[in-house]
Write a protein that binds this DNA or RNA. Structure first.
Length: 297
DNA sequence: CATGAGCGA
């Protein structure tokens, strides 16, 4: 380490020089593509110096591609209508467009569509926006199929695949329990409905979420939350679902709620007990809910 | 007073 050598202490010195007090007061490009900048600096002797630069920008074939350079000839429109070609530096800046893609989980790895998926896509295009029920071929969504109760026995995707695949009897290597999931997606054991004796998840008879015994609770205060009602009604038994009617915009409660139970007797009991009960500063009213008005599309 | 939301081949 020779102490004699005076070296630049850091790269910051260079930066300082580069950022010497310089003020660009004019910056324009004329119709010939000549950029003129006027700047004032203060030199080391404290004198102000005016610097005018005129920079002729030739088309840089190594930088600007032909098709990009071609755009300079396009007629301007909108607020720039009638202005000379090329970017006007008074109104145009160069920026970078950064796209930030957020995704839940790691599903962002979209795979290339497989040939069969392409076929499906084309079928869809041929249908041109028509909705076809996968269950009964009606013009409604599958979820709304009127026959979904009578035909619901079929296992989701299996029958659909039959259209695409020749009837090959050699099933892919499926473990004994997962026979019904040969379609591909993993289905947790608790969700596999096929195995008759397998899951206790199907407690009792009803697997439908729609036919749960549901109570309508009215006269709830507008700041009542789902959890409040769940706590209240949870005293009588298992609460399957709680919904608080809210204003779409403000989120404030609209004064009513629905509470669904697993068991109808429990719901009955809860209704009797909670009806007339004071809650916040109001008196709750509880009755059986009517099924939702039919929604058809 | 008061009867829910969303998904989409």
């Amino acid at each position: 380490m020779a102490p004699t050598a005076i070296q630049k202490t850091s790269w910051a010195d260079d930066i300082d020089e580069l950022e010497a007090p310089t003020k660009v007061v004019e910056d324009s490009v004329d119709e010939n593509g000549i950029r003129t900048t006027v700047e004032y600096i203060t030199n080391e002797k404290g004198k102000k110096v005016k610097i005018t630069r005129r920079i002729k920008r030739t088309l840089q074939k190594s930088v600007v591609e032909h098709n990009v350079a071609e755009r300079k000839k396009w007629a301007k429109f909108g607020q720039e209508k009638g202005h000379p070609p090329g970017p006007d530096r008074a109104t145009t800046t160069v920026g970078e467009e950064l796209s930030l893609k957020l995704s839940a989980g790691n599903k962002n790895a979209e795979v290339e569509p497989t040939p069969s998926q392409n076929m499906k896509t084309q079928l869809k295009a041929a249908g041109a926006g028509k909705v076809v029920c996968r269950r009964c071929s009606g013009d409604h969504f599958t979820a709304k199929c009127p026959y979904k109760d009578t035909l619901s026995v079929l296992n989701s995707s299996d029958t659909v695949m039959d259209d695409d695949l020749p009837p090959s009897d050699n099933a892919p290597p499926a473990p004994s329990g997962g026979a019904s999931t040969s379609g591909g997606k993993y289905v947790p054991p608790s969700m596999r409905g096929a195995g008759r004796g397998a899951g206790e998840a199907m407690r009792g008879t009803g697997s439908n979420r729609d036919d749960l015994p549901t109570l309508r609770v009215t006269n709830v205060s507008e700041d009542t939350q789902e959890n409040d009602l769940r706590d209240l009604f949870g005293n009588f038994g298992r609460v399957a679902r709680v919904y608080v009617g809210r204003d779409r915009e403000t989120g404030a409660g609209k004064g009513f709620a629905f509470v669904s139970f697993e068991d109808r007797a429990v719901a009955q009991k809860a209704m009797e007990k909670v009806h007339g009960m004071g809650y916040d500063n109001l008196i709750l009213s509880v009755q059986w809910s009517q099924p939702r008005p039919e929604q058809r599309g």
